[in-house]
Design a protein around this nucleic acid. Structure first.
Lengths: 233, 233
DNA sequence: TCTCTGTATTTGTGATCACATTCTCCTTGC
DNA sequence: GCAAGGAGAATGTGATCACAAATACAGAGA
């Protein structure tokens, strides 16, 4: 009746779990989707994905299953798999969900560093560095770099909130918007992009919680509006 | 160059897709979790689930994979599967996400029936019928019936919003709270339950959008508080 | 040039086996 | 009594095959 006895073997490898193929496949595919490397409607298949990643069919199946569950991939009535397509209604729903949740995640990151000058400054510094890269990507007209760096900025902020449940939900929302951001940006070019992130960084530095949330809300609305205007299918 | 030519075979079976085993397994397991039939920490395994549902291992694997992706099931460091456990932080996050999203879903259901007297009345009528069953469950002290009827009430309202993306997110939140509601209710008994749904029905009937959202917010907060107070692991 | 049609290919799904790891439980030794 | 250890069972994962359904494609016919 010893309390909470852990198995010996499990203790040895505490924390570090053996690499699992299907998780690696999932991570790479997820990244590609969030960064907008796969355009909406693009067809996927178990065997093609397996071949592309040099793995067998099983890990590919599992990765696809997860992404379908999260709404990133879509299954047609005849069970074919594709990157989810957009509709005006979907834009509207994703905008609402994102504007409700993401500012709250930012506020939590704010609260967690409240009163801890060092931690707050470190976060600001990291965000500033990313934002600088973002400016460069815009200046260079590098669409791929822009998408990737943009998601880096947001998730660096959100991860600082240490709120895994909310983060998981927001991740699924990004998995659903990622493909369109890329299409829209590459269609309009980076020249039309306005960097809304400086406001957020300023607010965080100045200790203005409300302004931080507002900055994110505007950033999201502006981005989603671009999707709506460009009318990507 | 005929526009959007659909395959013939697919047209024949338009809408109705052949039953797939793993979806059936998923639906049943999902229902059991949302209704709180499986307590937190309860262990699951591919083979056990397969045997219980009289299917082979593959469909069980796929169903489990989906539910892990949605946060309903948890994988330990040694890759064992269980119903997700609760922590104070998780309660806090789930409360925040639910209070942000669910009232908005209710508001959307409200808006969709705005000006359509017939549709609004039909929704009120359906909700009232469910609420009546809820009262009976409380009076009878029937915990299982209470859990199931309660989720029926909420999702009947939410589905009327016709917002699949938001509904999907909220479903994943219910998949994460379901197991605890049941534990808490069965621990405290139904006698302590206050039915907050009448306010919501009244608001819907009276055309008071704000009151509808507030009623739901209170219902969620009250329910989640009960989980926090009971401190279920 | 377009439509139909039959064939070949591709697809998701289910089933089953192998394997390394982890868990369970009972024996052994003190 | 009780901790240590080892044998056996159970588990998630990966690999591979079979199969029905869906798709792609090429050729025939008008």
């Amino acid at each position: 009746m010893s309390p909470a006895k852990k198995p010996v073997a499990a203790q040895k490898r505490a924390g570090r779990r053996a690499p699992v193929v299907h998780e690696e496949v999932y991570a790479r595919l997820r990244r590609a989707i969030i960064d907008g490397q796969l355009e909406p409607g693009r067809a996927l298949s178990v065997r093609m994905l397996a071949a592309q990643f040099s793995v067998s069919a099983m890990p590919a199946r599992e990765a696809i299953r997860r992404l379908v569950a999260l709404g990133a991939l879509e299954m047609t009535a005849t069970r074919r798999i594709m990157i989810a397509r957009m509709t005006p209604d979907r834009i509207d729903e994703l905008t609402e969900a994102r504007t409700l949740l993401e500012p709250r995640l930012a506020a939590r990151a704010f609260d967690r560093t409240e009163g801890r000058r060092r931690a707050r400054a470190a976060l600001v510094s990291r965000l500033s560095a990313i934002d600088k890269r973002l400016d460069e990507a815009i200046a260079d007209g590098d669409v791929a770099a822009y998408s990737k760096t943009n998601s880096d900025f947001h998730f660096t902020l959100y991860e600082a909130a240490k709120a895994p449940v909310l983060l998981g939900v927001v991740e699924s929302l990004w998995l659903q918007t990622g493909p369109f951001m890329r299409v829209v940006v590459s269609r309009l070019g980076t020249s039309t992009l306005v960097d809304q992130h400086k406001e957020a960084i300023d607010a965080l530095e100045a200790g203005d919680r409300e302004k931080l949330q507002t900055a994110l809300r505007l950033d999201i609305i502006e981005g989603m509006q671009r999707i709506g205007d460009a009318d990507p299918r």
